[in-house]
Design a protein around this nucleic acid. Structure first.
Length: 297
DNA sequence: TAATGGTCCTGTTTGC
DNA sequence: TGCAAACAGGACCATT
């Protein structure tokens, strides 16, 4: 599943292979892929064709391409969310269509020559594209659908102490808060479990009972595990294929909790247990991460 | 207002 | 062996 590190790898690939090129044609092959673009697929295509990709940006798990004319003071944003299975591929036009190809873009080179294709492939169709205006939030231009998303831990302007305060100000369970993109963005189910394991905290701990040190520890752990994943994921994409599949080698080698149910905790040897939480799987060490005694609700 | 639980999707895995 | 049910989960939305 693409979480922040995977999305950043995609952004890097798009910055290298798509920025500077223009949209020559857009073909929407699955309506659900543009469901968040309220004006519909024809409008989406009309807004993109002829525009140049000026930049590739990201906040949390949201990715967007700034599109407009070069020097445009107020470019629009092509907002891309990969959902659970989305991929952004840059390929030769004669490459065979993927089974789950949802949107095809023919790119044009700055000199007018035909360029490669940009393809949005998405098996489960949780992802999608939308063209949106940008608004200013905290002095930064953000596409409208991203305006409510908090800064992520890899953002240069991320304020850890403010995030600690905000986390402790919630009255909910810790894992739910970590997954709340309006509090801290970029953390999904996998990295939440990893961060909780690293900080030795159980996901059901009430946020308002955490010490500042505990809240800081889990947020720093989230940052650390995502940086480590980015280092590994960032090394694995090749020139023309902007892979994006989340399933980087990181998952196999370095996970301590997620997907490790039944295996020994690398700290204490106790078997990792799997629980259901928020209709999702959660994995933790029952010894290193004791569950809170009483649960209100 | 904030918290919470259900829902959308489809390929894969599990279980009878 | 074959089929059905369970599972995966980020974001959104209605409800409390």
């Amino acid at each position: 599943m693409p979480e922040l590190p995977e999305v950043e790898v995609v952004r890097l690939g798009l910055a290298e292979h798509v920025v500077g090129r223009a949209f020559a044609a857009v073909e929407v092959r699955h309506l659900r892929a543009v469901r968040r673009h309220e004006a519909g697929p024809d409008d989406l295509a009309a807004q993109l064709v002829g525009a140049t990709v000026l930049a590739a940006r990201r906040r949390g798990k949201y990715l967007w391409l700034e599109v407009g004319r070069p020097g445009d003071p107020d470019p629009r944003a092509l907002v891309v969310h990969l959902g659970m299975s989305g991929q952004m591929l840059v390929e030769a036009p004669d490459a065979p269509d993927e089974k789950h190809l949802r949107i095809r873009v023919r790119l044009r080179e700055p000199d007018g020559a035909d360029g490669p294709e940009l393809r949005f492939v998405d098996q489960r169709t949780f992802g999608g594209w939308a063209v949106e205006p940008q608004v200013e939030v905290d002095g930064v231009a953000l596409p409208w659908p991203v305006a409510h998303i908090a800064r992520d831990p890899l953002d240069a302007a991320f304020d850890l102490e403010a995030a600690v305060t905000a986390l402790r100000g919630r009255r909910t369970e810790l894992k739910r808060a970590l997954l709340d993109q309006t509090l801290v963005s970029g953390i999904g189910n996998i990295y939440a479990d990893e961060a909780l394991w690293t900080a030795r905290l159980h996901g059901r701990r009430p946020t308002d009972k955490l010490t500042r040190a505990q809240a800081r520890a889990v947020l720093e752990a989230a940052e650390g595990v995502m940086r480590a994943a980015l280092v590994q994921g960032g090394t694995s994409f090749d020139a023309l294929y902007v892979n994006v599949n989340g399933a980087s080698g990181y998952f196999d080698r370095s996970l301590q909790a997620y997907g490790q149910a039944g295996r020994a905790c690398s700290r204490c040897g106790t078997a990792i247990v799997r629980e259901t939480f928020m209709n999702r799987g959660s994995a933790c060490c029952p010894v290193c991460q004791p569950a809170p005694r009483a649960r209100r609700r």
